[in-house]
């Protein structure tokens, strides 16, 4: 995590939570990029933001080296650095042979039940599934 990446001015913090469920991987549609940009923008505006990567959505966390083209995973990386809580379905990742070494640091592999916790604390939920 870069210095200062996770720090927002206190005056910008808002008492509302947005949670995003992503079921689509990058490069299939723009869903992965839109979801990541929305998460990042909402966090920058001071909202608490959660993202849960499920089914093919777990591919979004699979980014290692630098890419000289637009990569939705880079937006997710920025979102994590800014304090967005991102969790990925452990079973979905395992099924695709994604290991912690393959994925963005700071993303927790967890069960779908943790998404229920996200739902419980959310004021708004966006689902990117279609």
């Amino acid at each position: 995590m870069g210095q200062g990446d996770n720090v927002l001015e206190e005056k910008t913090e808002k008492d509302k939570t947005l949670s995003i469920l992503l079921l689509r991987g990058p490069y299939v549609s723009e869903y992965a990029e839109i979801a990541s940009k929305l998460a990042l923008t909402a966090r920058k505006k001071g909202y608490k933001v959660n993202m849960f990567l499920y089914l093919d959505g777990v591919w979004l966390q699979h980014i290692k080296g630098f890419k000289d083209f637009s990569n939705p995973g880079d937006w997710l990386k920025r979102a994590v650095r800014k304090g967005v809580t991102v969790r990925a379905c452990e079973r979905c990742s395992s099924a695709r042979d994604l290991t912690p070494d393959d994925t963005i640091k700071g993303i927790e592999q967890s069960g779908l039940y943790s998404f229920v916790d996200m739902l419980a604390e959310s004021d708004r939920v966006l689902t990117f599934i279609g």
Binding site: T41, R124, L126
Partner: peptide
């Protein structure tokens, strides 16, 4: 668009449908 959409989702709209 993303700033506007976040404002709408969090402050303006009571319910949101994604398509």
């Amino acid at each position: 668009p993303y700033e506007a959409l976040v404002d709408l989702i969090m402050e303006e709209w009571d319910r949101v449908i994604m398509c």
